[in-house]
Computed example of a mutant assay.
Amino acid sequence: MTEDDVIKLKEFKASKNRLMGRLLNRSYRYMSTLAVKFLTDKGYTNFRVGQIVALVNIDVEGTSVNKIAQKAGMTKQGMSKLVKELADEGFVYTEKDPSDARALIVKLTDLGVRCILDWKACTEYIDQNFEEVIGAEQLNILKDILRNLVDKYEEMIETGEVPCEPIPLAFMKK
Rank of each mutant, 00 (worst) to 15 (best):
R26F: 07
C115H: 02
Y125G: 02
F38A: 04
T75N: 04
S32D: 13
A54D: 03
N57E: 02
V65H: 07
V60Q: 14
L55T: 04
I157V: 15
E85Y: 02
Y153T: 04
T2N: 15
E132V: 01
K174N: 12
C164K: 15
E154S: 04
Y93A: 00
D41S: 04
L9G: 07
D144N: 11
E131D: 07
K120W: 06
D59W: 09
V162K: 13
L111N: 05
I68C: 03
N46H: 08
S64R: 09
N129W: 00
K120I: 09
K37I: 07
N148E: 14
M1V: 05
F12P: 00
F47H: 03
T94C: 10
K143S: 02
V65M: 11
N25V: 05
V49R: 06
V133R: 10
K10N: 01
G50L: 01
E89N: 06
Q70A: 12
L117A: 04
K13A: 12
I145G: 03
K13L: 15
T159N: 12
E124Q: 14
T40R: 13
Q70E: 15
D151V: 07
E137A: 11
K67R: 12
M74N: 08
A103D: 10
L169E: 12
V49H: 05
L111T: 10
M74K: 10
E11T: 06
N46F: 09
K174P: 14
C122W: 03
V113P: 02
L169H: 13
V65S: 09
T109D: 04
S15A: 15
V106T: 11
C122E: 00
N25S: 12
V56M: 10
G43P: 05
M20A: 10
E61I: 08
D88E: 14
F47M: 15
S15W: 00
K174H: 01
A103W: 03
L146D: 05
I134L: 13
D118S: 05
V162Y: 08
K84L: 09
E3H: 13
A136D: 10
E155W: 09
V92F: 08
I7G: 02
G160F: 03
P98N: 02
E95C: 01
P168W: 06
A87F: 00
D144I: 01
A170Q: 14
E95W: 05
T75V: 05
L34M: 15
N148L: 10
M79N: 03
V106S: 06
K96F: 04
C115M: 11
L86S: 14
I145T: 13
K152F: 12
F130Y: 14
E132H: 09
M20I: 09
T75R: 05
V49N: 00
T94K: 14
S15D: 13
V60I: 14
A35S: 15
Q77R: 15
V83E: 04
K71T: 08
D100Y: 00
L82Y: 14
P98V: 04
V49T: 08
E95N: 10
A170C: 04
Q128G: 07
V6A: 15
D97T: 06
P98T: 06
V6E: 14
M172Y: 13
Y44L: 11
L23C: 01
V65T: 15
M1P: 02
L19C: 06
S99P: 02
